[in-house]
């Protein structure tokens, strides 16, 4: 079944050097339409660097990042600016929450709509019917997204006054506002308790189905990763040591070694 699906994101042999340090070494990864893929690995394995490389914040030293959002053939996006990458349909969240703290919650989401709207300087000054309509649509779309993520009661508050879990959800709402074909989540469950994590899991599945998008996530919570994702990729010291279904990964000796250390494998 999975094999019939179209690949939307294809990463081939990506490496990234920081001076003499090779943070990523020849990493391959692919995400298919409507799939939830997880990227796991111990701390410092290069997961966030990988995210930064494919979203244009860093330019990979070697390798290709190709996307095919709508089945029209692959497009290479290495070295494109982050805003272009987002416009092409890859939206991300950040490990350390990066909201716009002194803007209201709904305004944060409206920023996400920026690259899908067109109002220019002249439109802003003359406030012609087209601009007003666009602004109104932006507000309605943002509010609908807030409702979907259960944040509508906070719409008017400043983003910095939100509880932690809500801030995480707001980042997802903001990313969704860019109309992505793939959502890249960097440790969405970090700092959440088990109940919040379970809720988040449901949320991710429902978003994926409703918006018909793929999800690529970095996560440490093994329980969540195993139950949520269709496939996993494992990184260690910048190298990819395994990939496969959750079942395969949980039995892979290299992964167990990476996570638990050598002696336990022998024991």
């Amino acid at each position: 079944m999975i094999n019939e699906r179209r690949t939307v994101l294809q990463v081939k042999g990506v490496s990234k050097d920081f001076g003499g340090l090779r943070a990523l070494d020849d990493v391959d990864l692919d995400v298919k339409e409507g799939e939830i893929v997880a990227l796991i690995g111990p701390n410092g394995a290069g997961k966030t660097t990988f995210f930064n490389c494919i979203t244009g914040i860093y330019t990979p030293t070697e390798g290709d990042v190709n996307i095919d959002p709508y089945g029209g053939g692959f497009k290479r996006i290495n070295g494109m600016k982050p805003n272009i990458v987002t416009e092409l349909g890859m939206a991300r969240t950040f490990q350390n929450i990066r909201l716009f703290p002194s803007m209201s919650v709904i305004e944060n989401v409206m920023i996400g709509c920026h690259c899908r709207t067109k109002a220019t300087f002249l439109g802003a000054v003359f406030r012609d019917p087209g601009t007003r309509k666009e602004e109104q649509e932006t507000i309605l779309k943002s509010y609908a997204l807030l409702q979907e993520l259960g944040l509508d009661q906070y719409a008017d508050e400043l983003a910095r006054n939100l509880p932690y879990g809500a801030q995480r959800r707001l980042e997802i709402a903001r990313a969704l506002a860019t109309d992505p074909f793939i959502l890249l989540l960097d440790e969405p469950a970090a700092g959440m308790n088990p109940q919040e994590t379970a809720e988040l899991e449901e949320l991710i599945v429902s978003i994926k189905d409703k918006h018909k998008i793929s999800v690529l996530l970095i996560e440490h919570d093994m329980k969540m990763v195993m139950s949520l994702s269709d496939r996993l990729f494992v990184l260690e010291y910048g190298r990819e040591i395994a990939h496969g279904t959750p079942q395969e990964i949980s039995e892979n000796p290299a992964v167990i070694k990476a996570y638990l250390g050598e002696e336990l494998v022998d024991a």
Partner: peptide
């Protein structure tokens, strides 16, 4: 950075 990641 967040701003650019949001497509601005």
């Amino acid at each position: 950075i967040a701003c650019q990641a949001m497509g601005i």
